[in-house]
Design a protein around this nucleic acid. Sequence first.
DNA 1: TGACCGAAGTAGACACCGTCTACAGAAGTT
DNA 2: AACTTCTGTAGACGGTGTCTACTTCGGTCA
Lengths: 185, 185
Amino acid sequence: MGTRQRLIDTASELLAEEGVDAVTLRGIAKAAGVSHGAPLRHFSGRAELLSAVATRGYAALLARRETLPETSPRERLTAACHSYLDFALANPAMFELMFRRDLIDADDPALSAAASAVFDTFAVLVAAVPTPLARSGADLRLVAASLWAALHGLAQLWLWGGLAGASFAPSPEAALAVTLDAYLG
Amino acid sequence: MGTRQRLIDTASELLAEEGVDAVTLRGIAKAAGVSHGAPLRHFSGRAELLSAVATRGYAALLARRETLPETSPRERLTAACHSYLDFALANPAMFELMFRRDLIDADDPALSAAASAVFDTFAVLVAAVPTPLARSGADLRLVAASLWAALHGLAQLWLWGGLAGASFAPSPEAALAVTLDAYLG
DNA sequence: TGACCGAAGTAGACACCGTCTACAGAAGTT
DNA sequence: AACTTCTGTAGACGGTGTCTACTTCGGTCA
C-alpha cells in the first residue's frame, strides 16, 4: 500500500481516537512510521491531507444513504435524519473536521463534490415527501436546505455541550423528534 | 484603563478584523503594546482570555433582545430569529469563536452564564407563541431547543460556505423564512 | 550495460505558537 | 525602613507547519 494512502488511514484513526487537535502533520507522520517531512511529498500541506480525510467522512455519510429502509418516503427521510445525527454523535471528531474550514481546503474538488453529493441525495429524499411546506408551494430545495440546517444545528449544538448549563438537558433524539414534527407535520 | 481590559478589547478588535486564526496570545500582546508574557499575568492562559472575549459576544447577542419590537409575541420571536442570524453573518469570527470549545473554556462561569441567558430568554420568547407544536402538547423548552438548533445550523452552514457548490445557492433569509414557516405554521 | 533523472524519504532549519521561569521594579503594608 | 505582592519583561523549552538541501532508489533511454 502506498504511503499516501497509509497517511490518510493513519490520520483517520488518529482523528477518531485522539480528536481533531491530535491530527497534526508531525503526529500523523510519526504514527505512520515516516519522517516528519514525508507527508509533504504526497500533500501540498496539512490542509490537503485533512481534506482527504474529511472527504472520506462525507463518503461515509453518503454510504449510510444506501442502508435506508425501502418503505415510505416519509420513513426514509426520518431514517436519514436520524442517520445524520447518529453519525455526528458517533464520530464527533470527524464531524467537526468536516466543517472546520480553517483545517481543510473547501475548494478541494473531491471534497466539495462529496459534500454536494450528500446534500443532493438529501434533497431528493425531501422532495419525495409531501410535507405541509411543499403543499404550500415552497421551493423544495429550500425546504431541504432548511431541514438540513436544522439537523446540522442539532448535531453541532449537541456536540458543543448540549444545552448543559441551561435549566434542562434534553436528549438529542427528543429534540430531533420535535424538529421532524415541525417539518413533516 | 487596566491592562486586563485593554487585552480583551484588543483581542476583540483583532478577532473582528483578522479572524479567529489571528487571535493569538502573542499577537494580542503585541497589538496591545505589551510583552508577549504580559497576558499571562491577567489570564491563566489563552483559553481564559478568549473566554472573556466570547462572553462579550454572548452579551452582545443578549443585548439585541432589548431591541425587539413591542408587538405580538409571534413578531417578537421572528425578529429574534432574524437577529440571531444577522449577528452571526455580521460577526462571523466572533460567532465562530463562541462555539469553538477548543479555544475557550466551556466551564468558565461568566461564559456559561451568558450562554445560558441567551438560551433562556429565547425559550421565553418561544413559550409566548402558540405554535402548532405547542398546541400538540410538545415540551416548550424542547421546542425552543429545536428551533434554536435550526437557527444555529442555518448560521453555521451559511458561514461554512452556504450551499455553494450545490446545484443552487439560496439566500440565508430565504432559508430562514422556510424554517420559521415550519415551526410557526 | 551504464548513465541519467525524477520520485520519495530524511534531517535540519526557520518562524511562530503557548507556556514556564527567572528577574526587575513599583506599590503598598507592617 | 524592610518586606511582600503585583505587574511587566526577557529568555527558554517543546511543539507546530513549511522550506530547503541531501540521499537513495527505481525506471528510462542512449
